[in-house]
Design a protein around this nucleic acid. Structure first.
Length: 111
DNA sequence: TAGCTGACGCCCT
DNA sequence: CAGGGCGCCAGCT
């Protein structure tokens, strides 16, 4: 198992409820801005992991739930996010900027 | 073994 | 303003 995946899971699991982040933000935080695809791939692999990974809190830069199709049911992702107080319309997160949680910024603050 | 694909993102035309 | 292409890394066929 690559460390990259581990790091991705580590970051994703730290996303606070009611907040979301983007693949690119995580990739950038890990040091590879262009490896956003890898993050998505890690999410796919997260399904195999026994440990629950809030992949539903990870969306694209557009705030669009592009990964909902990889869940058991496409609606599962929206349900989970709405359950956390995030409004979603047609797979699009409303007030995405307000819900956005940037690991680089947030962690830098805590550190 | 080599090549293709993939839950993205940004630049260029 | 819209569309297309390249970069990134690892897994799968």
């Amino acid at each position: 198992m690559s460390d990259f995946f581990e790091q991705v899971y580590n970051v994703v699991r730290k996303i606070p409820p009611g907040k979301v982040t983007s693949y690119g933000a995580i990739a950038t935080y890990l040091g590879s801005p262009g490896a956003a695809r890898m993050v998505g791939w890690a999410m796919n692999a997260s399904s195999s992991k026994n440990e629950f990974v809030p992949a539903h809190r990870v969306v694209n830069r557009n705030g669009l739930l592009t990964g909902k199709r990889h869940f058991d049911t496409p609606k599962a992702m929206e349900e989970l996010l709405e359950n956390e107080g995030i409004n979603i319309i047609d797979g699009q997160i409303q007030q995405f900027e307000n819900k956005f949680w940037n690991p680089s910024t947030e962690f830098k603050k805590e550190l």
